[in-house]
Nucleic acid binder design. Structure first.
Length: 837
RNA sequence: GGGUGCUUAGCUCAGUUGGUAGAGCGUCGCCCUUACAAGGCGAAGGUCGCAGGUUCGAGACCUGCAGCACCCACCA
């Protein structure tokens, strides 16, 4: 073995070996264990969060595979409708083209092309991270099989009355020009104004003042509402208003929704442009006047003067016109919640359109029950409250998107406007007896990406076909995911899984925290604090890192500040720490906390740990060179002690894995390796191996222990640090009597059943404390290590003397002393430094 | 407005049925002792956010308060 651990030399070679040997496929006859990967968006590259999540899934997968389970980690990627379409559209725009110029078919072709390229990058990253997924089962959400599963699900939901088409207010993104679900709209508090506007009564007998944050929508007002009990306005209920700027007459209505204490106590009602107003409009039978176009400009239903103006331009003109007319009573500064599209950042408009919806309540009820009854368990357990909270207030899910990239909605329209839902045009013609001459036109819209994601645990297994994979691996064992997509994904998988398979999609949901930078900030391109996991693995120069962080920014003016901060934080660039160090860092980071701060210092620390393991292994190999497997020999105190400590470590690590406490597992194995195996046991082995007085049996006992403990330790560590453990194991395994060409298929260590011997532990403790006492004296008095000390025991018990006698050689060596003896009775102690034992 | 977390060593965090406070990184000494200077040996450093309560005993359990963070929500 080389003197220094060098990860780049070994990792890629080992992964190739594993993959070529087919070691990632399910194997053996044990119980099935399965994880489906949360499919990353094809369009991107893996970020730290993915690498973290992949590390956890891979550790679980390797742990279960070694424990004898028939194990599948199902890989795949997501087409990510909006996100991917935006990326490709941006590429087109950079070339001076638009998708509309290109046309739908050629645009989709282009996206496929990009998908091939981008998907390859992700697969390479996963390999570099050591992910032991079964590549032969790789899936993409738009593969033919997956698409037909999506279609099947839609058709069946429709047949059961759980999918419907409806015209109602929907969240409309006027930049992307598509509908969005509630979840894709983020409300952000922003500065705005509250405009108080005088609305004159139609008969000229007075006026009412309304307060609004959106004056331009008054062009679509169809009523003014007051609270029914509000004495100030009671006599106005039922009177008519002459709506300024439009000249239409609208009624004053009474509705308990109105809060008399807010604003002016009078609310303008615009049913076509506000969700609350829509409800009020429904209650009072008010007309809907849609004054906006798809890109949120003023449309034909508004007075001519405003048509064609963007909504914010229109707002200015409306306010100016009101002011000119003397109708603007007051302008107040006002903080309000602005809804924005999570992808485009555009202010979302409530807009009246036809969309497809999933009737969600009938699906949510059994999904809530599955968690209540413990058929699905969240880890940590508290996340079920978040789940319940959302599921019990859930609203119908808008699933149609006005996009080009995705699963086309399997609905066709006849010339009479009739809607037919089916698996294909042929099926629909056959079922409904529609003649070939009658034109059927397929719905132009695509499905929400999350609709196909919701089917992922069973669509990847071949559903709706009854496949062997489905029968073996569904329900899957555990879902590993971040809390940010519990609503988007986890809840919907549970609902769809129960609906279509009659069973839960997974038995446990391990909800991990989110990786942030070392200051607790979310990693994002615009903050310039993004780290590519492979740059930590393979290293990167400072200049290359700066270039990476400052290129392709949405706001190029941020580049200098990002460059400066990067140069300050990583003056030397980033060293090549290797995958194992990165993975161990992720494991150690995986506490139950929501925010996990990533710090390169920790990676360095765990790279050092790899180096420690590497060098300890070199020592063991050297010390056991030529030692054949001929029985265990005679075990020393230290030999028996380290074997019992190994058992304790095995228990702790297994416990950590079974409770998804990867941090505790990592800590236990780290402490055992460094503090017990290396700091103590290897040192105890030296006097035995290097003494001329040791018997052959004693030598063998210690050599066997060295190799047996190291071999087990490698297996114990393997799920977290797959590469270095394989590299070393290939040398150590045979010497420990193992056959087999990979550590991956070796059994996971199990603790010996016998209970730890307390007398053994006590004697070892005594010996260690003795040594520590001498070392402390030496440290405090600055005594050179080369100076051999003499030690006198005062008030020593018979037991002390027995301990000393049995372990004199070890103590002499590790404490650096010449001799130790008890003071005779009546002998006075000379002037000396003292330590209490 | 509703919900969920967090507050322990300079920094980042563990602390699983309540039993004399731990780790990593950082800091300070000494040491190139043939596995390892990416190291060894030793040391310093905490009234566990605040105030009550339960208990023989509380970082942990209960109540209140303060600060921080996140999620959900229709006050125009």
């Amino acid at each position: 073995m080389d003197k220094t651990y060098s990860p780049t030399d070994i990792e890629e070679r080992i992964y190739r070996h594993w993959e070529q040997a087919g070691l990632f496929a399910p194997n053996g006859a044990g119980p099935c264990f399965c994880i489906v990967i949360p499919p990353p968006n094809v369009t991107g590259t893996l970020h730290m969060g993915h690498a973290f999540q992949d590390t956890i899934m891979d550790a679980l997968t390797r742990f279960h595979r070694m424990a004898g389970d028939r194990t599948l980690w199902q890989p795949g990627m997501d087409h990510a409708g909006i996100a991917t379409q935006m990326v490709v559209e941006r590429q087109l725009n950079a070339e001076g083209q638009s998708r509309h110029e290109l046309g739908r078919d050629r645009f989709v072709e282009r996206v496929w092309h990009w998908k091939e390229q981008s998907g390859g990058t992700i697969a390479r990253q996963m390999r570099r991270l050591g992910a032991s997924v079964d590549w032969s089962r790789d899936r993409f959400t738009m593969d033919p099989g997956m698409s037909s599963a999506v279609q099947e699900a839609f058709v069946r939901l429709h047949e059961d009355g759980l999918v419907y088409r409806g015209k109602r207010l929907v969240n409309w993104d006027p930049v992307l020009k598509t509908a969005l679900s509630d979840l894709e709209v983020l409300s952000v508090e922003e500065d705005g104004h509250l405009w108080h506007i005088n609305y004159p009564l139609a008969d000229g007998s007075g006026q009412l003042t309304v307060a609004t944050t959106r004056p331009e929508t008054m062009l679509g007002d169809t009523a003014v509402a007051v609270h029914p009990e509000d004495e100030r306005f009671r006599q106005l209920i039922g009177r008519r208003i002459s709506l300024p700027l439009s000249g239409r007459e609208i009624p004053v209505i009474a509705d308990a929704y109105v809060d008399p204490a807010f604003g002016s106590g009078c609310v303008k009602i615009t049913p076509a442009h506000d969700f609350n107003d829509y409800e009020i409009g429904q209650r009072h039978g008010l007309p809907l006047i849609n004054i906006l176009t798809a890109d949120a400009a003023i449309g034909d239903a508004a007075p001519e003067r405003y048509r064609g103006l963007d909504r914010f331009e229109a707002r200015k003109r409306v306010v100016a016109d009101l002011e000119a007319a003397g109708l603007l009573a007051q302008i107040e500064a006002h903080r309000l919640m602005i809804p924005r599209g999570d992808r485009s950042g555009a202010v979302v408009e409530p807009w009246l359109t036809d969309q497809w919806y999933v009737r969600i309540e009938p699906l949510a009820i059994p999904a809530v029950r599955a968690v209540e009854e413990g058929r699905i368990r969240f880890v940590p357990g508290n996340w079920d409250r978040t789940y319940f909270e959302w599921m019990r207030n859930i609203k119908d899910w808008c699933i149609s998107r006005q996009l080009w990239w995705g699963h086309r909605i399997p609905a066709w329209y006849g010339p009479d406007g009739a809607v037919y839902v089916g698996r294909s045009e042929d099926e629909i013609r056959a079922r409904h007896g529609i003649a070939p001459g009658v034109a059927l036109i397929q719905d132009e819209d695509e499905l929400d990406t999350w609709f196909s994601s919701a089917l992922w645990p069973f669509s990847t297994m071949g559903w709706p076909e009854d496949t062997r994979e489905f029968r073996s691996f569904y329900p899957t064992s555990v879902l590993v995911t971040g809390f940010d997509i519990i609503f988007f994904w986890v809840a919907r998988m549970i609902m769809m899984g129960l609906k279509f398979t009659g069973d839960v999609p997974f038995r446990e949901v391990y909800v991990h925290g989110l990786i942030r930078d070392n200051e607790g900030q979310k990693m994002s391109k615009s903050k310039g604090n993004v780290l590519d996991p492979l740059d930590v693995v393979d290293g990167i120069t400072l200049d290359a890192l700066v270039a990476k962080r400052t290129s392709g920014l949405m706001q190029p003016k941020l580049a200098p500040a990002i460059a400066k901060a990067t140069r300050k934080q990583y003056p030397q660039g980033i060293a090549a720490y290797g995958t194992d160090a990165l993975r161990f860092t992720f494991a150690a980071l995986a506490t139950q906390s929501r925010d996990l701060r990533f710090d390169l210092g920790r990676v360095e620390g765990y790279r050092n740990f790899c180096n420690k393991l590497w060098n300890a292994s070199r020592y063991v190999l050297l010390a056991t060179d030529g030692d054949a497997d001929q029985g265990s020999g005679t075990l020393s105190l230290a030999d028996r002690w380290i074997r019992s400590r190994l058992d304790a470590a095995i228990l702790a690590v297994r416990d950590g894995f079974s409770q998804y406490r990867f941090d505790l597992a990592a800590q236990a194995v780290y402490e055992f390796t460094w503090y017990e195996f290396c700091d103590w046991y290897l040192e105890f082995s030296k006097p035995v191996l290097q003494s001329a007085d040791s018997t052959a049996d004693e030598l063998r006992g210690t050599r066997r222990t060295l190799i047996v403990v190291l071999e087990a330790l490698l297996r114990l560590l393997h799920p977290l640090m797959p590469f270095i453990t394989e590299e070393i194991w290939l040398r150590v395994g045979p010497r420990a009597g193992s056959t087999g060409d990979s550590i991956m298929r070796q059994p996971y260590p199990a603790a010996e059943p016998g209970a730890a011997d307390p007398r053994l532990a006590a004697e070892m403790r005594w010996v260690m404390d003795f040594i520590l006492g001498i070392r402390r004296i030496r440290g405090e008095l600055d005594i050179a290590p080369s100076l051999r000390l003499s030690v006198l025991l005062q008030n020593a018990s018979d037991e002390d003397l027995a301990h000393l006698a049995r372990n004199a050689a070890s103590i002499r060596r590790l404490a650096g002393i010449a001799e130790a003896r008890a003071l005779a009775a009546g002998e006075t102690a000379p002037q000396a430094a003292a330590a209490l034992l």
